[in-house]
């Protein structure tokens, strides 16, 4: 469904992504893990059209995305849950969700949109309770749910999530990730970027490991979870286990 080939991204003259390739098949939940500064968010921004000026190839359902602006990309079926949520604080929860449906509003009038809204509120019942409240007054976890719900409102085929677990308590992280599994089982294709490697690999089908702009590892999520290199670098199992081994 999504195919990235030899992608290079630049910030001015600095190359943040140094030629990576990855693919996401229809119905898959793929995760991309890596430390701070590895280029995860850069990749997300390149796919969603927020970051212009990359070279290489990004194909979505066999169509190249190069040169497309975010509106066209959203319409083509890719929706981004940005890092740090970026919900619209002063606007109500309901208005935030409507904003997510911005690109479908004109073509499908009210009923379809309120149907989608109903679906999102089934998924996150708390949003129904909070629907009239300004989004800025929600808790971190609720805001993340809203950000995901908002992204779903554009009826994406592919959902991109940029660190949905950031700054959330473990219990909430689990809840959010469970929701992603639910969405995947409903047929949504998901590309999940995470620092929380353990949790992300726990729900993903396949995983990629990105390190300072290069793809260093890839494979089925279960294999990556067992990989020594991943364990050492991302799962926080280095010290005690390492010393035991030696």
């Amino acid at each position: 469904m999504l195919r990235v080939r030899n992608l290079k991204c630049f910030y001015g003259r600095i190359m943040a992504i140094k030629g990576i390739s990855l693919s996401v098949r229809e119905g898959e939940l793929v995760t991309l893990i890596g430390a701070n500064g590895a280029g995860k968010s850069t990749l997300m921004n390149a796919i969603s059209g927020m970051l212009p000026g990359w070279t290489g190839e990004i194909l979505f359902r066999e169509k190249p995305l190069s040169g497309l602006e975010p509106p066209a990309i959203v319409r083509s079926g890719i929706s981004l849950v940005p890092e740090g949520r970026h919900i619209f604080g002063p606007m109500s929860v309901l208005d935030n969700l409507k904003m997510g449906a911005y690109t479908v509003y004109r073509r499908q009038r009210g009923e379809a949109v309120s149907g989608d809204m109903e679906m999102v509120m089934e998924l996150f019942p708390i949003l129904r309770e909070r629907s009239g409240q300004p989004a800025g007054t929600l808790s971190g976890g609720e805001q993340q749910m809203l950000a995901i719900g908002r992204a779903l409102m554009s009826r994406p085929k592919l959902l991109l999530l940029d660190e949905p677990s950031m700054g959330l308590a473990p219990l909430l992280v689990e809840k959010i990730l469970n929701t992603l599994t639910t969405l995947k089982n409903q047929g949504l294709t998901i590309l999940l970027v995470e620092q929380n490697a353990q949790a992300a690999l726990g729900i993903a089908d396949r995983g990629y490991v990105l390190e300072t702009g290069r793809m260093v590892l890839q494979g089925p999520a279960a294999d990556l979870l067992e990989d020594e290199e991943v364990k050492r670098a991302y799962l926080g199992k280095d010290y005690d286990e390492f010393y035991e081994d030696f």
Binding site: S48, M50, P70, P71, I73, V74, R75, L80, P82, H86, I87, F88, G89, P90, M91, M99, G100, Y102, T103, R150, S154
Partner: peptide
């Protein structure tokens, strides 16, 4: 509120 997020909404 956030131009970046607005762009991400399409």
């Amino acid at each position: 509120d956030s131009e970046a997020a607005a762009r991400a909404m399409g």
